[in-house]
């Protein structure tokens, strides 16, 4: 096994992990504040991918503008979903919210099929993004580096917002104790909305990256990566943003290594491997690596 192959795998793991991390952050933020597993979160990735495609193809906008627009589209979608589906159910049992999010997800996927048809579309990136970049003898492309760099940038930006700003403080306070946060004068509805908007914006950008990396998108594309990002969030401890980031990279890396290092007969089992890990972690390490919650899960 050459060093180049190993570097390939590492870069592949980092790229995949970057996308998982960005999506997992949203899962964790939303769960952290209202204890909702938002199943529809993965479909924001799909929406982000299609918005990017539309803007690049139809309007030929410059990439930084497209990235901003994807952020905005994801965030806007999160806002609408929260207002329309989840706010009316606040206070209901957790499972109710989960079923509702499943319904939202099915609705978004099928709306996608209805409007865009289930046919996969080619996702064209500007040439310079797909140009090869030589690095330690590995076969990587500029887009891989761009994905990792922007994911790390966005994730640290978000951590900074959570750690340093007034809104971030309000989010942490709300996540810890919703009623007491209200007694401090925090408008929790706005805080929850902010968590949805920020988390969904990152998921939207992840859609951009997904399209750029794999070159094809379809309306059901958010389902599996969404679920896997949830697994990443569970690995890190749902509710913890740094945990979600780490979980994303851990999962991306181990998935790529699972496929790359084991004999090829095992490769088709990668999804089984991921969800087996999920069940195992839920059973033996219910708070994940970073979760601190003492809430009963098992």
């Amino acid at each position: 096994m050459s060093g180049g192959y190993l570097t390939d795998l590492l870069v592949g793991g980092l790229t995949l992990g970057s996308m998982y991390a960005l999506v997992a952050i949203g899962f964790s933020m939303i769960y952290g504040i209202i204890r909702l597993i938002n199943f529809a979160h993965g479909d924001i990735v799909m929406i982000g991918a299609f918005v990017t495609l539309g803007l690049v193809q139809a309007l030929d906008l410059p990439l930084p503008l497209v990235a901003l627009a994807t952020l905005a589209a994801g965030g806007g979608m999160g806002l609408i979903i929260e207002r329309a589906a989840f706010r009316p159910m606040r206070g209901a049992p957790q499972v109710t919210g989960f079923i509702a999010s499943l319904a939202v997800s099915i609705m978004l996927q099928n709306l996608g099929v209805l409007i865009l048809t289930a046919q996969p579309r080619n996702f064209v990136c500007p040439d310079w993004l797909s140009a090869p970049a030589r690095l330690l003898g590995a076969n990587i492309r500029v887009i891989d580096l761009a994905i990792v760099a922007s994911a790390l940038g966005l994730a640290s930006g978000l951590m900074l917002v959570i750690k340093k700003t007034r809104l971030g403080m309000a989010m942490r306070a709300t996540a810890e104790n919703l009623d007491t946060a209200r007694l401090m004068g925090i408008d929790v509805n706005r805080t929850i909305m902010a968590a949805f908007v920020m988390g969904s914006a990152l998921a939207g950008v992840a859609g951009f990256m997904w399209g750029g990396k794999f070159g094809q998108i379809d309306p059901l594309l958010g389902y599996v990566p969404g679920l896997k990002s949830f697994v990443a969030a569970v690995i890190g401890g749902v509710g913890s943003v740094p945990g979600a980031i780490l979980g994303g990279y851990l999962l991306g890396m181990s998935e790529v290594l699972f496929v790359g290092l084991l004999p090829p007969v095992y490769a088709p089992y990668r999804d089984a491997f991921v969800f087996g890990t999920l069940i195992l972690i839920l059973l033996v390490l219910p708070n994940g690596l970073f979760g601190t919650s003492t809430e009963e899960r098992a």
Binding site: I37, F98, D271, F275, I279, R297, A298
Partner: peptide, 18 residues
């Protein structure tokens, strides 16, 4: 079955995929 609520739901979904 030791899991509860939406965690059980997610685990059974994992089972379905497996």
């Amino acid at each position: 079955l030791r899991l509860k609520g939406h965690y059980l739901a997610v685990a059974t979904m994992g089972f379905l995929i497996i």
